[in-house]
């Protein structure tokens, strides 16, 4: 069984449905990017995975069982705001982690403090937001976990230290760690992740192997000299989203792009292009509201 398995997860806060049927799995050695606008359910999903909150329904398996105290031998969690002791120093936190976690690697922790340019003698209360994030990351990576859950791991870090986080993630994945991370920085995710899950209002709107999505999801752009009958294209199962702006038609294709190209070509466009979609474009087309009314012209 995969180290992380989430099945039909639901969580409601009063009338607000924060997570409404989320499912995904993360195999060992995989980095899964959890993306979505603010309030789409990312942090709630993490809280359910770690036992910080009780799910309304669904099944969660972390390291072979439901969230439980024993899993923390193998699981490291870096929350968006790390729970650190303001009056203690970085070195104090390393010492606490060494006592708490059997596998904690002290020499590595010291090297990581150095990597993030952190002064071990400085009290946490005196650190910037980015430096606090970095302390949380040092504690997580030094524990050499089998599973990592990271909520916005690069927030507040400068570009050099963001790059260091990416390198650490790649190394951990190469060592077999299963990693799930949320990030607003799509550029980071599209580099390091091999899988993505995109949430919108608590639901999964796009999910899968990132390279498969890159290979499959295409944009077909056609310009017509005269109005054409495009009704058939609007109901085509291969087309995820249809946009028309004046004489230009944009088709977001999620299956058989070559076949769609042939069919659109048969309608006699003056120009026809098949465009690749990077993760940012995929993300926006997945979370954007449909806007047919403003796009319909002619």
């Amino acid at each position: 069984m995969n180290p992380i398995v989430i099945e039909s997860l639901h969580k409601r806060y009063g009338a607000f449905e924060a997570v409404a049927g989320v499912s995904f799995e993360v195999p060992a050695g995989s980095i899964c990017g959890l993306l979505g606008p603010n309030g789409s359910g990312k942090s709630t999903t993490f809280k359910c995975m770690l036992g910080l909150t009780q799910p309304g329904a669904g099944r969660i398996s972390i390291a072979g069982g439901p969230p439980r105290p024993a899993m923390f031998d193998e699981v490291a969690f870096v929350p968006e705001r790390s729970a650190l002791y303001d009056r203690f120093t970085g070195a104090d936190h390393l010492e606490m982690a060494r006592r708490a976690f059997r596998a904690f690697d002290m020499p590595r922790a010291k090297a990581l403090l150095d990597l993030f340019s952190l002064d071990p003698k400085k009290r946490i209360g005196k650190l910037s937001k980015g430096q606090r994030t970095a302390v949380g990351l040092v504690l997580a990576f030094a524990a050499r976990p089998r599973i990592m859950v990271l909520d916005e791991p690069a927030s507040g870090l400068d570009p050099i230290h963001q790059r260091a986080v990416l390198d650490l993630l790649i190394e951990a994945a190469a060592a077999g760690c299963a990693i799930v991370l949320s990030s607003h920085q799509i550029g980071q995710v599209e580099r390091a992740a091999d899988r993505v899950v995109v949430l919108k209002r608590g639901r999964v709107v796009l999910e899968g192997d990132l390279d498969e999505l890159r290979g499959r999801e295409k944009l077909v752009e056609a310009v017509f000299a005269a109005p054409v009958d495009d009704r058939r294209l609007r109901d085509d199962a291969r087309i995820r989203r249809f946009e028309r702006r004046g004489s230009m038609v944009r088709l977001y294709v999620h299956a058989d792009p070559d076949g769609v190209m042939r069919d659109v070509g048969a309608l006699g466009p003056v120009s026809l292009a098949l465009l690749d979609q990077n993760l940012e474009e995929l993300f926006f087309s997945a979370v954007e509201e449909p806007r047919p009314a403003t796009l319909e012209v002619g």
């Binding site: 050695g29 995989s30 980095i31 790059r163 990416l166 390198d167 790649i170 190394e171 994945a173 190469a174 580099r191 390091a192 992740a193 091999d194 390279d211």
Partner: peptide
């Protein structure tokens, strides 16, 4: 190669 290119080892 994954570390050199900063891409996922699975890739």
């Amino acid at each position: 190669l994954a570390v050199d290119l900063t891409i996922n080892p699975n890739t």
